[in-house]
Amino acid sequence: MSIQHFRVALIPFFAAFCLPVFAHPETLVKVKDAEDQLGARVGYIELDLNSGKILESFRPEERFPMMSTFKVLLCGAVLSRVDAGQEQLGRRIHYSQNDLVEYSPVTEKHLTDGMTVRELCSAAITMSDNTAANLLLTTIGGPKELTAFLHNMGDHVTRLDRWEPELNEAIPNDERDTTMPAAMATTLRKLLTGELLTLASRQQLIDWMEADKVAGPLLRSALPAGWFIADKSGAGERGSRGIIAALGPDGKPSRIVVIYTTGSQATMDERNRQIAEIGASLIKHW
């Protein structure tokens, strides 16, 4: 067993022997301040990774656009098919120029040779490549099948209805392509620590998230040296922004954090800054 596999296998073990965790309302004060600064709703939840206990939450059962955070769930569904012998990570998928959609920095470079399922998941999570996500959605049967996968996990809230990039439209009061912070946090925890996926697939999923290259201005910008984070960000229309993450000190994750916002007129930089400040408060009061 590799060191990384050992780390993920012992996530519940280490967490069980940690000192009790206590909620700190100071972080919620910052979440509410972010709402004021952005002029928009902000949803927040913080779960203990081992027990699933909610440590703090704000608007945990209000719907927010998922945006690209759905790509972690998508690759979880792909990995479940791999575990069941219905898919192979090494299978190569070929596609054409007509398949390319807006923001496809990886797939646009491989029109000639195609990409493997493993490479597509890596591109979808680490670079948020939209064509990679659409190609992977095709392998599982489309958005409705991802929703069905989530329902089978016990998540009857999260739903995907459309493809990239239309799913980022974020129309107010439109339930399409949305989740709730509580539902997303619980589902992410199941994917990373539950028995739904094999140990190898859980490790692969967290490795992809740990290698995320496009979430630097968010929670990662607030992390002290030595902290662990595996995350996936999302951005959408109407001032929408979000991030889902597993993080913790001492090089291992111990909490799940989900943050979503929508309806702001603020710039992307300002949305990023507010999420980073929430992260800084979380870490300060850990």
Rank of each mutant, 00 (worst) to 15 (best):
M1H: 01
S2T: 13
I3N: 14
H5G: 07
H5P: 09
F6D: 05
V8H: 14
A9R: 09
L10D: 03
L10W: 07
I11E: 03
F13W: 11
F13P: 07
A15Y: 15
F17G: 09
C18S: 11
C18T: 14
P20K: 14
V21H: 05
F22T: 06
A23N: 06
T27C: 08
V29P: 04
D33A: 15
A34H: 03
E35N: 03
D36F: 15
L38F: 08
G39T: 09
R41Y: 10
V42E: 00
G43Y: 00
E46C: 07
L47C: 09
S51V: 06
G52V: 04
K53F: 10
L55Y: 12
L55M: 15
F58G: 05
F58D: 02
E61A: 12
E62T: 11
R63G: 04
F64G: 00
P65G: 03
M66A: 07
M67R: 01
M67Q: 08
S68W: 00
T69P: 04
F70R: 02
F70H: 07
V72I: 09
L73E: 03
C75P: 01
C75K: 00
A77L: 11
A77G: 08
V78D: 01
V78Y: 03
L79E: 02
S80F: 13
V82L: 06
V82H: 09
D83E: 10
D83M: 03
G85K: 10
Q86V: 14
Q86M: 11
E87W: 05
Q88E: 13
Q88D: 13
Q88V: 11
L89I: 07
L89G: 06
L89D: 05
G90T: 13
R91C: 04
I93M: 03
I93Q: 05
H94Y: 14
Y95Q: 02
Y95G: 03
S96I: 10
Q97W: 11
L100D: 02
L100T: 07
E102P: 15
S104H: 06
T107L: 08
K109W: 09
L111F: 09
L111T: 13
D113Y: 11
G114I: 02
G114A: 05
M115K: 03
T116K: 06
T116I: 06
V117G: 02
E119K: 06
L120Y: 02
L120S: 03
C121K: 00
I125V: 12
T126K: 07
T126V: 10
M127L: 11
D129N: 01
D129E: 01
D129G: 00
N130G: 05
N130L: 01
A132K: 00
A133P: 02
A133L: 00
N134P: 00
N134T: 05
N134Y: 04
L135Q: 07
L136V: 08
L136M: 07
T138M: 13
T139S: 12
G141R: 06
G142L: 01
K144M: 12
E145N: 15
E145M: 13
T147I: 08
A148F: 11
L150K: 00
V157G: 09
T158L: 01
L160V: 14
L160S: 11
P165K: 07
E166V: 12
E166C: 11
N168Y: 03
N168V: 06
N168T: 07
E169H: 11
A170F: 11
I171K: 14
P172C: 10
P172S: 12
N173E: 14
E175R: 12
E175N: 13
R176N: 08
R176Q: 13
R176P: 04
R176Y: 07
D177K: 01
D177M: 01
D177C: 03
T178S: 12
T179P: 00
P181E: 00
P181V: 07
A182H: 12
A183F: 08
M184Y: 09
M184E: 01
T186N: 13
T187Q: 05
L188E: 01
L188M: 12
K190T: 14
K190G: 13
L191A: 06
L192E: 02
T193N: 15
G194L: 09
L197S: 05
L199S: 11
S201W: 03
R202N: 06
Q203P: 02
L205A: 03
L205G: 00
W208I: 03
M209G: 03
A211F: 09
A211R: 14
A211E: 14
D212F: 02
D212S: 07
G216P: 05
P217A: 14
L218I: 05
L218T: 04
L219C: 04
L219Y: 03
L219D: 04
S221Y: 10
L223T: 13
L223C: 13
P224N: 06
P224D: 06
P224M: 04
P224I: 03
A225T: 14
F228W: 05
F228H: 06
I229Q: 02
I229V: 10
I229T: 03
A230Q: 02
D231A: 06
S233E: 01
G234R: 00
G234W: 00
R238S: 11
R238H: 15
G239F: 02
G239P: 01
G239Y: 02
S240A: 13
S240P: 02
R241T: 05
R241A: 04
R241S: 06
G242D: 01
I243M: 06
I244C: 09
A245D: 00
A245F: 03
L247Q: 02
G248Y: 01
G248L: 00
G248T: 01
D250S: 14
D250G: 13
D250H: 14
K252G: 10
S254P: 07
S254W: 09
V257S: 03
I259Y: 04
I259D: 00
T262E: 10
T262K: 09
S264Y: 04
Q265I: 13
Q265T: 14
A266S: 13
A266Q: 12
A266H: 10
M268N: 07
M268K: 06
M268V: 09
M268Q: 08
E270Q: 12
E270K: 13
R271T: 11
N272G: 05
N272T: 08
R273S: 10
Q274K: 12
A276D: 05
E277W: 06
G279F: 05
A280C: 11
S281A: 15
S281Q: 13
L282Y: 03
L282A: 09
I283F: 11
K284T: 14
W286P: 02
W286F: 05
